[in-house]
């Protein structure tokens, strides 16, 4: 089985090396590819110095476009599964193998790493948890499926979903609606508990000013995704 880790990186020069080390040590079966989303810092140089394989977007696309590039790469290079993995130190590679096992055991199309099953590790701020719970409720209402952590960026998908995402993936804040799109297409999505860390470097893509826009956009996108034909 060919397994790929996609690491979207925007100005992650401080944490990218440790992220890749983590993968090499704790998930040695996985290949990895960093997608540098036209960083303004020296992420490219850091990758080159340390021999880290890196796709370079010539223009900044945002998280959705960057991750999708990784999925296209996965499709073209014949990978069976791809997992998205943040470059800012939030995710731990020791869960990757567990996610693959969970996918095989349950015959799932997608495995989401959730912070809110065992409620261990970094739990995000109260206001964010409230937002996540709201999105969770909307998804439950629309699809009947319980997803405890719809905003989780740690997601393993099989080849089938990879091909769908390579064609069509949301641009900004892509996690919740791309998830609903898959559930609506009757694919099997499961969650397993993971422990996430507080980001060591960089800032969240959701600033307080963006929060209201985020909630409205994502809620609308979820509703559209529910009724989208793929």
């Amino acid at each position: 089985m060919k397994k790929l880790v996609v690491i979207p990186a925007y100005n992650e020069s401080a944490s990218i090396v440790s992220t890749v080390e983590d993968i090499k040590q704790n998930a040695p079966d996985f290949d990895y590819i960093v997608v540098n989303d036209c960083s303004t810092d020296n992420t490219v140089e850091v990758c080159k110095e340390n021999g880290i394989r890196c796709l370079q977007l010539p223009i900044n696309l945002g998280i959705g476009g960057a991750v999708q590039t990784g999925y296209i790469y996965g499709v073209r290079n014949g990978y069976d599964v791809v997992v998205q993995f943040d470059g800012d130190g939030q995710h731990s590679a020791r869960f990757l193998e567990t996610m693959v096992e969970a996918m095989e055991e349950n015959d799932a199309d997608m495995v989401v790493g959730s912070r809110f099953i065992t409620n261990e590790g970094f739990q995000s701020s109260a206001i964010r948890r409230l937002g996540i719970r709201f999105l969770s409720g909307v998804i439950k209402l629309l699809t009947g499926k319980t997803i405890t952590d719809p905003t989780s960026g740690m997601r393993l998908i099989n080849r089938n979903i990879m091909e769908i995402y390579a064609k069509d993936y949301p641009k900004d804040y892509p996690e919740p609606d791309s998830l609903v799109q898959i559930i609506a297409a009757k694919k099997k999505v499961i969650e397993i508990p993971v422990i996430m860390n507080e980001r060591t470097e960089g800032v969240s893509s959701i600033s307080p000013i963006n929060a209201i826009y985020y909630m409205i956009k994502v809620t609308l996108a979820i509703i559209f995704a529910r009724f989208k034909k793929i």
Binding site: L55, L57, I72, R76
Partner: peptide
């Protein structure tokens, strides 16, 4: 369309 092109450029570079 622009997004597609940018992605294609990155993949071709690789």
């Amino acid at each position: 369309k622009n997004t597609r092109l940018i992605q294609e450029v990155a993949l071709l570079r690789d």
